[in-house]
Amino acid sequence: MKILLGLLLSMTFIFANESLNSLYENVILKDSKQTIIDIKKLTNSIKSDNIETAKKDFVALIKSWKSVEAFYILGDLDDDFLDTPRYLDMYHQGNEDIKAQLDLIIKSDEDLKIALYKNSHKTINALEYILYKKDLKNKRVKDIALIITKKMQENFQDILDGYIKVKKSFVEDEPKANYVTVNSLIENSYKLNEWRIGNSAGLSKKYLGKADNRRAEYYISKNSITAIEAIIDTHLRILDTQKYKNYGTLARSYGANKAIDDAIAHLKDAKRYASQIKNDNFAEATNLYNSLKKLFYIYNITLIEKLQVTSKILDADGD
């Protein structure tokens, strides 16, 4: 009996380990590597003054970066990496007007290494402004773009190296992998819905009835919906049936079939609604918002049920 139980426990452990390893390889590491490939391509396009290709490469970079950001768990696995995404992306962080600052830097003749001293000057948002609103044929603008891509590449490399370093602590510690993954999905689904959609569409509590497309994440390049689609795709790659095992496989092995099915259904609905929005017009985003709101709700319900905290509490019902 003991041998059978031991065997069963080791099989469960191996299965969990396999799913987590596969998730790590096929989503986390794959996406992290892709950001480096994409930023290198973009750098080369800028260097060769190919502006149209650079813009296409920038769209590819948005997709890969949003995938990494959508499931960014490195900060939970190693505190040193908690702030790394802030060095790459300043969306919804503070009210800094980098456009005005970048304009001043372009006009001045100060050494760029000194002028671009802030992290925010070297983010994907700064790069978007430079690529879409400034003339890359201007040497100083081009130099700024290259400084930004260089710094971004360093940060992407840091993320990849960090993930490789802490892989064991995720794959071999199932309880930790569970709370880190679930927290990440919940946090990201909230930011996706409330920040990226609700605030622009005037559906969030903060901006209720005050839609404004300028609040969208990539308003300048009109790539906000592309970013949203990339995030939804990442959730699907984490949960939906793929050629590889993922978190959906693991959750199903613990009987969470309904929750996973519901989450996938809402993600697929959201993907369909997102594809119907033209020209990043968030006035058409009500269905998308509602669908993702349900996703956030499902993630939380599942979490509360999974934790089973309420059944382990002192159940005394009298005195």
């Binding site: 709370y179 927290n183 919940i186 979490l303 905290v309 382990k312």
Partner: peptide, 8 residues
């Protein structure tokens, strides 16, 4: 979030 649990 999902970090909570009961020490048992």
């Amino acid at each position: 979030g999902a970090m909570i649990g009961v020490v048992d």
